[in-house]
Design a protein around this nucleic acid. Sequence first.
RNA 1: GGCCCCGUCGUCUAGCGGCCUAGGACGCAGCCCUCUCAAGGCUGAGAUCGCGGGUUCGAAUCCCGCCGGGGCUACCA
Length: 459
Amino acid sequence: MAVSVRVRIAPSPTGFAHLGTASTALYNVLFARKQGGTFVLRIDDTDAERNRPEYEALIYESLHWLGLDWDEGPDKGGPYNPYRQSERLDLYREQAARLITDGKAYRCYCTPDELEAERKQAQVEKRPYKYSRRCLTNPPSDRSVFAVRFRVPGGEIHFTDMIRGEMKFDADLIGDFIIMKSDAFPTYQFASPVDDAAMKITHVIRGEEHLSNTPYQLMLVDALGYERPQAYAHMPLILAQDGSKMSKRKHPEMNLALYREHGYLPEALVNYLALLGWNPGTSQEIFTFDELAHAFSFERVQHAGARFDWEKLNWINGEYIRMLSDDELAKRLRPFVPQLDEETIRRAVPPLRTRMHKLAQAIDYLDYLWTDPPTPTLDAETARRVRSAIDTLRDTPWEPEAIEAALEKAVAESGVGKGKFYTPLRDVITGKKVSLPIHYTLALLPKDVALLRLQRTVD
RNA sequence: GGCCCCGUCGUCUAGCGGCCUAGGACGCAGCCCUCUCAAGGCUGAGAUCGCGGGUUCGAAUCCCGCCGGGGCUACCA
């Protein structure tokens, strides 16, 4: 009888919500949905120094925006409350005490400086560093501040990674590591496996940076007598364009808020993220969420890190924009052009939709509607053509089709081509070299305003 | 330094011993459409499969070494 799948993400609220969190969350959700399992959100706020509640809110917000909703979490509760590690401190302390009682962990009174000296010494002697176990064999009696160190049993650690297969680590190479900090907070290495066990997590899906951490956590799981998770999956990292690891400092694309601000559709970002490191084995590029959940499998996850590529994201986002209905696109455009009324936005959608790879670009096409462009100086011949445009437009119904027809007639009579005729009109109306097709450009502007802008250049 | 993961067009990738003169997508170039910009259509350039050895009748695919990148080795997660 198979127990139902339970997966989790455990982000740290130490800064803005970032891309890696979204990516990991996505793979967890995809797996959970496919297996009919449960997706848990746990807040890993054991770094008292750097955690901030507002960052936690940012995580909720970003994940909700992406549609990656969780079944259990600090905000909605669940059978394994609480879901914030800072509220589970008693559990970690109890378990650490149990390990100490069992002789599987011990108090370490070494100061950071002393440990640093040990490490340096090892480096000088060109030998791999392992904690000296000074506090295990010969603890000082005159100190009171301590951390708790796990007594690493050594041996070989085996586990299954759903992406890479059977993994094997030599734990004799791992030194005794700290599980409880001197501030009585657990380290990640400790809190994570304790909570995974307590919350009955069956599959641990996380970034590749945790692959080497797995033996640490498995030793703890064994020492505590917990059941091991069924399997792990370590997802390839998302790299910056230059192939380096993404850093918050140098790579703004890490910040999830940025995507919303620029007008990337959450479903497009999800689609892109799914394709970064995974492929369906078919030529399909655009997926609904359900299609992703259905097609997803760890066997088809890439083993190497993948570089983030704006161009591909832009293309996918453009595809999604073009697939939206007129009304839906108008609705999503609203926050980007608050200067415009709904009716105007709605009328701008048809010519706009093929011209954006992100929603914020609408501003470049539409800002002439609320910004008065400078009045250019026209030569005599151009002025003559503008006058003829004014004449024909004055009696034309203010609709794109009618305007187009009227203008084409004026063009034919002018003896010059459309390009020569329309370019100055575009310049006068928008002040730009690029705009929506001229008849839309005109139609979106109130007729009197459009005629005024034209008229004042020829007066 | 030690341990672990990884290495196919610029990028994301297909490939799991012969179907590969290495396929697709993004991007790029040209042409068509066209009032600008897009979108769309059509064509095209682009990878000696990191390098060097093996194994094999035959290797991008298997093995070894090297090089390169990344991760872990924290009282950060």
